[in-house]
Write a protein that binds this DNA or RNA. Structure first.
Lengths: 341, 341
DNA sequence: AGCCTCTGCACAATCGTTTGTGCTCTCCCT
DNA sequence: AGGGAGAGCACAAACGATTGTGCAGAGGCT
């Protein structure tokens, strides 16, 4: 760590002044503390010459401000979360803050541990994309007064500002569209049951069915994870057990992939045999064999909103009044939705 | 920051001992420093009761070790870089380190600034995915003795360990395959000229052409960025100016997207009118209208290798002997490559 | 000449840990 | 009883920066 070798002490010695004078000269407080411009200049020169880099660590200790934001996600490699990370990083950068990245690898246990680590690093704020199973540890966080924002998966009983897509409206529109195309038996390949996004999407489907005078059936909801495997298996099971299904609504890209694989295996084509629509848009969605209709979450806006709400909390020291922020999703209709066969 | 409110001092007072004793008791050095198990227990209890979290900042200052790794990427939202971030984060986690994430937004200027910031935070190691224009600032880094690894884009004149795909071999195989399918006029839609990956890929193409007794022509190399726009525009220009081109080799997913858009606009179909192959595989690649042949970079392995090399540097304090690590790429042949029309 | 004011800086405390050293008991031995 | 050893802990100095305060000298005024 030769980088840290040159401290204020060295600069001060080189300039022939005391450490405090050197500090003030470099902090631009020369005027305020009556440092002569002579002295100021020689301090600056010494600092340049020696390549002085102030230690953020020492500064943090003294000022009780780490200048750090924590970003905790279940998987940075997931485009949704990496988009969030990007927006928060950009916002942090604009304010001279740095971002500590933590990846819980989809495990609540890791989430708890990492959260503690981040706190012991004195982060000044947290953006958390929870795994979503359980929120006890988040309640504690809510009780502390450390600024924090939840993204995507919130909890009804955790009093933390939450930013998420308007899943319900998105799912409503999808289902309504499918109904308008004549579909009556619509299979839902869901993600992790119990999580906020999942339940809101199901609620959206139910609403749309009810408004059309149709009934919602749990039999048509399959799957248990936001993964390709779950999509594949639940799709097969659904086709086996409910042969008259004519449309599939998958709750994520990964699930859609699994469904596509299952359909391909069975020689079923989209939209001739089945219509398909999924949550999460994708650059290639329009170039697929069956250009895929999607609900595009505005990930950038979600990330930005989370960052802004966090910054506001940090500055004002108070949690904003509104707790749940729903970001509109955009329904992108492509040809993967056809009339009922 | 109520989180940091309880310090060792409070714990010590609560347990009725001195700060040093409290420190040693919690550090598990009771035996070594002859702290009675009585005392040790009461210290631990006090710590638990008060919810003591040691300040990482103070610890870092004292120990001169930040426990931080820096990860600098041009864009976290790019799947390649987020995969790298994930692997490094995992490796860091396994060793009790944390990761500082910095995003240069594809700008060398930001890269320089962020690099300085990371250093002033006393990071113990750096994984850098350089923007790739210019490497002067990296030379300085190479001269310092702070452990660092470059990923993807390296520089011939920067003496830093570099991990990258074997672009040359990948491009060679692509080109050879196209030649075997009868193609003679192969357009390359490149990324940013001058960067290591780009030049190595071009070299691979040239080698394959030469080995087949064909000549390489600069006229067939178009484009200037790894972006959708560049792909779109360079594809149009190429089609206009070299109408007898029968195969396209795009250097990234984004570029492939642009090319697909251009081809679609002109009513050209893959592979009947033109064959298409691209760098970077993709989950949906097989489900495209024309299932896309790709060169799959092993991003996970690249990230892991970078992390391992970094850890090795940190532990031994020396740079590894070998400087350039080429990770094999996998050619995935799908039906987007057909015979010459 | 004596006092005051202003200039220009140095001294020292502080943030929360870690760690080398020193001090005070107790107990045992002779 | 006096000396030595060991046990059990406290004291204090660091780490590198920031910041309140003190202090010396120059100059002006009466």
């Amino acid at each position: 760590m030769a980088a840290g070798a040159v401290t204020l002490r060295h600069v001060a010695d080189a300039a022939g002044v005391s450490v405090s004078t050197a500090s003030r000269a470099l902090a631009g407080k020369a005027r305020q503390y009556r440092i002569s411009s002579q002295t100021e200049r020689s301090v600056r020169q010494a600092a340049d010459r020696l390549g002085f880099r102030p230690s953020h660590v020492a500064r943090s200790l003294r000022s009780q401000k780490s200048g750090l934001l924590g970003v905790l996600v279940p998987d940075v490699a997931n485009p949704f979360f990496s988009a969030v990370a990007r927006e928060v990083t950009a916002a942090a950068d604009a304010r001279g803050l740095s971002v500590l990245l933590a990846d819980s690898r989809e495990t609540t246990g890791n989430e708890v541990t990492l959260l503690e680590q981040l706190q012991s690093r004195q982060v000044e704020g947290l953006v958390i994309c929870p795994v979503g199973d359980e929120g006890e540890h988040l309640k504690q966080l809510a009780d502390s007064n450390i600024p924090a924002v939840l993204v995507d998966r919130g909890f009804a009983d955790v009093r933390l500002t939450t930013v998420t897509t308007d899943h319900r409206a998105g799912a409503y529109e999808v289902t309504r569209t499918l109904i308008e195309h004549g579909h009556r038996t619509i299979g839902c390949l869901q993600g992790r049951p119990g999580t906020l996004p999942n339940e809101e999407r199901i609620a959206g489907c139910r609403d749309a069915l009810r408004d059309a005078g149709l009934t919602f059936s749990r039999r048509l909801v399959r799957g248990d994870r936001f993964s390709e495997e779950s999509g594949y298996e639940s799709c097969r099971a659904l086709l086996d057990e409910v042969p008259d299904v004519t449309a599939l609504f998958t709750f994520s890209n990964q699930i859609a992939l699994g469904a596509l694989r299952a359909l391909q295996e069975r020689g079923l084509s989209v939209p001739d045999d089945l219509s398909l629509v999924t949550f999460d848009d994708h650059p290639f969605a329009g170039f697929l064999a069956a250009p895929l209709s999607t609900v595009r979450q505005d990930v950038a806006r979600i990330g930005r909103t989370a960052a802004e709400l966090l910054m506001e909390q940090i500055q004002t020291g108070r949690r904003p009044r509104r707790r749940l922020h729903r970001i509109p999703a955009e329904f992108v209709l492509r040809t993967s939705i056809g009339p009922r066969p």
